[in-house]
Design a binder for these strands. Sequence first.
DNA 1: AGTATAATCACCATTACGTCA
DNA 2: GGTGACGTAATGGTGATTATA
Length: 253
Amino acid sequence: MGSTCDNIYGTGLTLGLGFSSTANQKSRKQAPAAIRFDLSLSLTSDHQIYDQKTENKVNISSNKDQLSAASSYSNGSVKRERDIGSEVTQVERVISSRVSDELDDNDNDNDGSNARKKLRLTKVQSALLEESFKQQSTLNPKQKQHLARKLNVRPRQVEVWFQNRRARTKLKQTEVDCEFLKKCCETLTDENRKLYKELQELKALKVAQPLYMQLPAATTLTVCPSCERVAGAGQNSSKPHLYGPFTNPSAAC
DNA sequence: AGTATAATCACCATTACGTCA
DNA sequence: GGTGACGTAATGGTGATTATA
């Protein structure tokens, strides 16, 4: 066991965690992780994170950028600790997460720059994720862990992939809905145009044949049950049919 | 039992990286 | 080789819900 400092802040390293120890309300998700990190982990003099509970040590770089990246990734695994329900302690999870994160950093961080590294999933990984998504679009923590192990990626990456996948699905569905509504709108506009035209024809008919005005009061315009048009006497089939009380509606068409 | 606080999660908007034409 | 468009991995913020003190 290496000699330990009282806490990580006693090392003199600037961690660059991106938040202060007084929890920022807008990023309260991050603050607790920082507090736990502070309380349960120490930085040994030989640049190792030391967990007093499990007596585990993790080699880390003193490069503040790497520490910062590891912290943000470990944050994801800390917050899921309660739901996983395994016997592994929370700190062990932090440690193991950090180990894998560190490996990831080593894989990706060749130049030691602070640039965001974007991992490209392989076709096999994407296919497996897609397959899982087909079965269910959300994963519980256990499934997430399992899938992450299977794919050899971080659980957070699986989580992110599913989140983005749901967003893509939603976007596609929105496009489909939009297209459908557009068609509905076109149909209704068409229908409206036809009805307006019929109305104009009826108005013209009313002016040309004032006889209708002399019909008994009981006379009403009726919709022809066959063609669902307003029926009119003496019209051809393409025009509205108007029939009176003594006209056989079925004969109108 | 009611309340305040913290933790977790899904969702969303946005950013930034990798690829391709 | 430079560049813009595009797909998508990753990030940060927010509201809702749940657990805990």
